[in-house]
Design a protein around this nucleic acid. Structure first.
Lengths: 330, 330
DNA sequence: ATGAAAGCGCTAACAA
DNA sequence: TTGTTAGCGCTTTCAT
């Protein structure tokens, strides 16, 4: 089924059209206007180029113009709701600008992160977005050495503009919702709000792969121990992440339903199925699209100040999972 | 913070090391052996190249060798568990071979699919994997015109080797599990097994974006109508996809728990949270990694026969969601 | 054991 | 309004 063994070049098109190579070169884009080439010539060239299936080779053009037409993005992994949403948005914004995005997963390992950034740099990407960086300073150093503009998303760095979700705000809103749902007096130990699955240390350590993998189990132990100590499920439980929430469910779903009746459960991350429990679950959906929109705004503006940009998250009220499609992160 | 304005070239390194450009060119790889360059010279060049932060520009090398070092993959969208797993695997296999993967989402639209394939071709990708193709024949035509090897995954095409999940086998296994759980006599209409959320037509039409988005709602209507007609939840419900399952839950979770006690529910797709319901759920997890492994086997073997390769799916028994980490797709 | 030189396909001055 | 020319940075014969 294969056909042509060698692709046509502008010289072939030049020969076929009777024009010169440079005229052919100018035809596809808009530069023929400045070069004052007649529209007729351009049309003629375009049509025979189309017939021959010619299109400028990215390598040659890139070599000449010192730009590859590629833009890079680093994410911890594809196989994750949040980062996949970011990929999807980055794709859309990039294509919209006529650029081809190269998205590479770092696997949450600083070493791998550096290994991933290097080929992106030698690919001559125009700029780079780094999401969930484990070693932002190292990445910044590499980018700066190559004079490459970059932004950080989700996890901040000091070497380039960072866009982060407003986690404090999100958690605060969530807490307020929980309190509205079930006024908490704090009269007894059980009548309080507890936070499960990571604290301040999470930023630096628990985001690493191994800890990440173990998060469900450890959250399950954590919540089981808490309930055991208190003699029942506390009035409010706020779970840090979906992974932890999964573990939390491991304990909570084994309990008789009436044990949960007077408790409110919340999670700082969102998943439509996770939201669908026999008890109400308050969730916060991170705005991955907004994060990337903001990142692209920085890129478009050519900003490079390291001021933190916050993007607000969205409150998800309990049991609304069927109001929106599973894949609808719009 | 930016530093060097222009990247060092082999000529710079040549000048600095006292060697010639061609010698510098041979140093990084293995070709210096055939060229009988002394190991000492190579080491010297390598060290000063490293010091200068030099690495061969992909554009120039690609132009010269007519290969870009890129490999392409087309997926319907990033923001989906199944396809994200495929991306993740494709990444790993590609990097393992020293190639940079470019993964582009087609949004399940044939027109977009063609728009996406074109830049990949002009990027001179070495080969291409197309997952969930909506118009495989058009893609094959484009690839063949560019003499580009390619394989299809998930959805087959006739123009290149296809790797597909063994859906029939998966559904059959699932059905057997359901029947084991709750022997179905078929004595009454309710005492039967029903299939929700798509039939044979799904392959061609319902996979389209619009239908995809509407799937939860339509599945919810479908199952509600069924239960209404039968006067209750049937003995067995097999749901086609996660999106449909989400809609199904919209109905089922509103029912009193005892209404579901004598029914078995199954889904042809898998999600750890979806599996965590107040009633047992049988699920099938597609082997995205296996699909890509097989696709890469085809690429490595340079095969191009259009014989269907099947990859088996994995049975997920009810309520095991906390046995594995959320992100652990092994 | 190494250097010189000729391009890969394209674009942008500079001519005409 | 268009053609000619000189490279972009690298690899690869072919000559030393």
């Amino acid at each position: 089924m294969p056909r042509a063994s060698r692709k046509a070049t502008i010289h072939d098109i030049a020969r076929l059209s009777g024009a010169s190579a440079s005229t052919v070169s100018a035809a596809p884009g808009e530069s023929w206007r400045e070069r004052r080439i007649s529209e007729a010539t351009v049309e003629a060239i375009r049509s025979i180029a189309a017939a021959e299936g010619h299109s400028a080779t990215v390598q040659a053009r890139g070599l000449r113009k010192a730009r590859s037409g590629l833009v890079g993005m680093v994410i911890p992994l594809h196989d994750n709701r949040f980062f996949a949403s970011m990929s999807q948005s980055f794709e859309a914004f990039s294509r919209q600008r006529g650029l081809v995005p190269v998205i590479a997963p770092s696997m949450r390992a600083p070493q791998e992160e550096r290994r991933i950034v290097e080929p992106l740099i030698t690919c001559a990407v125009g700029y780079m977005a780094i999401a969930g960086a484990t070693d932002p300073d190292a990445v910044s150093a590499m980018c700066n050495a190559a004079n490459l503009r970059h932004v950080f998303a989700d996890l901040p760095g000091r070497g380039a503009p960072p866009v982060v979700p407003d986690n404090n705000r999100g958690a605060a809103d969530l807490t307020r919702c929980l309190l509205t749902d079930r006024p908490i007096t704090g009269a007894t130990c059980r009548d309080r709000l507890y936070f499960i699955g990571g604290g301040p240390a999470d930023y630096a350590s628990a985001r690493r792969t191994e800890a990440f993998r173990d998060a469900p189990r450890s959250a399950m132990r954590e919540i089981a121990a808490l309930c055991d100590r208190l003699g029942g499920v506390p009035a409010g439980v706020l779970v840090n992440s979906l992974t932890a929430f999964e573990g939390g469910l491991g304990h909570l779903s084994g309990l008789p339903p009436e044990d949960l009746r007077s408790s409110v459960i919340g999670c700082c991350d969102h998943d439509p199925f996770a939201a669908c429990q026999p008890f109400p679950v308050h969730m916060v959906r991170q705005d991955a699209h907004g994060l990337i929109r903001e990142a692209y705004r920085i890129i478009d503006q050519n900003a490079n100040d390291p001021v933190l940009r916050m993007v607000e998250a969205e409150q998800i009220v309990p049991r609304t999972f069927h109001d929106r499609a599973f894949s609808d992160h719009g």
